[in-house]
Design a protein around this nucleic acid. Structure first.
Length: 425
RNA sequence: GGAGAGGUGGCAGAGCGGCUUAAUGCGCCAGAUUGCUAAUCUGGUGACCCCUUCGGGGGUCCGGGGGUUCAAAUCCCCCCUUCUCCGCCA
């Protein structure tokens, strides 16, 4: 959510932001409703003021005077009822519209329609050239008995995986490495609910708009399975006015993540790339409302992801996500794409977002500055490691000719010292 | 799942239809006093919206939403949530 005052003051800027993001939003209708609201507000306040005065006099008045006041009060009540009804009607139209206004993209966000137009910022590592015919992760996994798509499908439907044996151990190792790394860097760990109410999803900007991708329980419970720990993790600090001394807040959590992947039929159907359930370690930063600080945090959380990939010796690139590929809530987003030999290209493994006040405003997450003034916080988040996609990269990039897989040195301590997993095929 | 008790400002906690402009205490801020710190005394101390001649004025907010009333923190209904006991349970 952006500030209605900003829409009033700079409607053209807001419209330009919508256009850059390729998001349709009726700003003029919002301004029209807002004007109605601004017209009604002083009238209602004035009537209420009179009503309060009358009510106060009533308590001390003589019986005769009471009759008169009662008459006046009845009149006021009727006028108020009518105006309040108008106000409610106005708000009922305005509020849902305001929730659809996207956050304004940063200047540095490239123009563009979709991910084809994302701009590469940097590349790290060199994709390996194999002197044998490399297998993809599904071939390796099935041959080693680590993956069984058919069984996963029988148990849970398509787009599911079961990692078994040494692969499961590797998955745990990756998550553990990611968590430990972030704790070392000053992030506070949490274990959070993955089944949540609607409010945190509205608050973090997944509603409205993202509902199609989210599993929803039946109405006995009316809860949602989160697609990322970002949702509960960021919401921990909602509806509070924080002491500036406690900022920034840096959080890290592992969670299972659920995605319906509606509308992706036929796309990435093979293997671990696009699945309904995976494991992820996520980092969240909450700090003061300061563009420069936010940008510094953005680079910091991006660096955390890069450091993890470098530790795993996985080639990657960083892209600056273009306007059309940006979600409504983000000011800017850097995607990290890791080299996946089977795709003969880079596949998204991390997504570092900066939101400014957008989430905080919805979550009513504020802080008091040194002068005692209250402001909305800035929030950011990024993946540290998303298990299924990083497993693709690890298996495919570090495979040996005989079908075994080398374990990067930093992961070995979580693998009981194993340097290589699998059997010779 | 059953029974009961609660949810009031940063925190604790009173109020249970109009003397509430939400008492009081703690905390916090400022001033006074005092070698320093501490203590003591005095004063101040919220969020949000609208208007403003920038001095200020008006309104909303007592878990959330409805309702009753001239008037609701206070009465009624629904929901959320916390605690205690019982049941079930990793």
């Amino acid at each position: 959510m952006i500030d209605i005052k900003r829409i009033r003051a700079e409607p053209d800027l807001v419209k330009a932001g919508c256009a850059k993001k390729r998001i349709e939003c009726d700003i003029d209708r919002i301004l029209e409703l807002d004007a109605t609201f601004l017209g009604l507000s002083p009238k209602i306040d004035e009537l209420r003021s009179q009503q309060k005065l009358g009510s106060k006099e009533m308590s001390k008045a003589t019986p005769e005077r009471r009759v008169e006041i009662l008459e006046e009060q009845r009149g006021l009540k009727e006028q108020l009822r009518a105006l309040e009804a108008e106000m409610t009607a106005c708000q009922e139209q305005l509020q849902p519209l305001l929730l659809t206004v996207p956050n304004l993209p940063a200047e540095a966000v490239p123009e563009g329609v979709d991910d084809q137009d994302n701009v590469e910022l940097k590349k790290w590592g060199t994709p390996r050239s194999f002197d044998f015919a490399p297998r993809d992760h599904v071939e390796i996994g099935e041959a080693q008995g680590w993956l069984d798509a058919e069984t996963a499908g029988r148990i849970a439907g398509s787009r599911n995986y079961i990692s078994m044996g040494e692969l499961a151990r590797l998955e745990h190792a990756v998550l553990r490495f990611a968590l430990d790394m972030m704790i070392d860097r000053g992030f506070s760990p949490a274990i959070v609910p993955v089944l949540v109410r609607a409010e945190p999803l509205w608050g973090t900007g997944y509603f409205p708009g993202g509902g199609d991708q989210i599993y929803h329980t039946d109405d006995r419970d009316d809860l949602y399975l989160v697609g990322t720990a970002e949702v509960p993790l960021t919401s921990i600090h909602a509806e509070k006015i924080h002491d500036i001394k406690n900022l920034p807040i840096k959080l890290v959590a592992h969670s299972t993540c659920y995605r319906r992947e509606a509308g992706t039929y036929g796309k990435d159907t093979r293997g671990l790339y696009r699945v309904h359930q995976f494991q992820k370690v996520e980092q969240v930063v909450i700090d003061i409302s300061d563009e420069k600080r936010s940008l510094e945090h953005h680079h910091m959380i991006l660096q955390n992801a890069e450091d993890l990939l470098q530790a795993f010796d996985l080639p990657y690139r960083v892209v600056n996500v273009c306007g059309g590929d940006l979600g409504a809530p983000q000011v800017q987003k850097f995607d990290v794409e890791t080299w996946m030999p089977s795709r003969d290209g880079y596949g998204e493994t991390h997504s570092a977002s900066r939101f400014h006040e957008y989430q905080a405003r919805r979550l009513k997450m504020r802080y008091r500055d040194k002068e005692g003034k209250v402001h909305f916080c800035h929030t950011l988040n990024n993946t540290v490691a998303a298990s299924s996609r990083i497993l693709i990269a690890l298996l495919e990039n570090h495979q040996l000719e005989d079908g075994r897989v080398a374990i990067p040195e930093p992961l070995r301590k979580h693998m009981g010292g194993l340097e290589v997993i699998g059997k010779s095929l």
